[in-house]
Simulated assay, not measured.
Amino acid sequence: MIEELSHEHIKAIRQLRNKSQKEWAELMNIDPGNLSRIESGELKLSPIYGSRLWKAIELSNISEFEIESIKTLIEYRKRRGI
């Protein structure tokens, strides 16, 4: 499922739990600058970062339903030009 997440999804997942980039980077155990680059699309989500993202998602108790809802919302916004 991680492979299906875009940088937009990652940012929205973080915002779902009202976490700053610094707080989310700490959960992922990565540098906040790298998280910023991942969220902007500058840096691809490598397998290592993907596993760390998944760990942060688990620690934050984010369900698959919530992730799918975020993906649907972002797709809807793209289609609407929002």
Rank of each mutant, 00 (worst) to 15 (best):
E23V: 10
E8D: 09
W54G: 04
I67Q: 02
R79K: 15
E3K: 15
R79F: 01
R80F: 00
I82F: 05
Y49P: 01
L16W: 05
S36T: 07
E75K: 14
Q21L: 15
S63Q: 11
N18D: 13
I74D: 02
S69W: 00
P47S: 11
L45K: 05
R77L: 13
R77N: 10
N61G: 09
A25T: 03
K71L: 08
E23Y: 05
E42S: 04
E75V: 02
S6K: 13
N61P: 03
L73A: 10
I2F: 07
G41S: 06
W24S: 08
I10V: 15
A25G: 09
T72Q: 08
E3R: 15
K55I: 12
L5E: 07
K19P: 03
R52Y: 05
R52I: 02
W24P: 05
P47H: 07
G41A: 10
S36P: 00
Q15I: 12
G50S: 09
S6E: 14
L5Q: 07
N34I: 11
Y49A: 14
Y76D: 06
W24N: 04
R14V: 14
A56W: 02
K71F: 00
L45W: 07
L27G: 06
S69A: 14
W24V: 04
S69K: 14
E75A: 12
Q15H: 07
M1G: 15
I2E: 14
S6T: 15
K22R: 13
K78L: 03
E8M: 11
S6C: 11
L5R: 06
M1I: 11
F65S: 13
N34E: 11
Y76I: 08
E75L: 12
A12W: 02
L35F: 10
E68P: 00
I48P: 02
M1W: 08
R80K: 11
A25Q: 05
I57L: 05
G33C: 11
E66Q: 13
M1Q: 15
A56R: 06
I62D: 08
L73C: 00
W24K: 04
K19C: 12
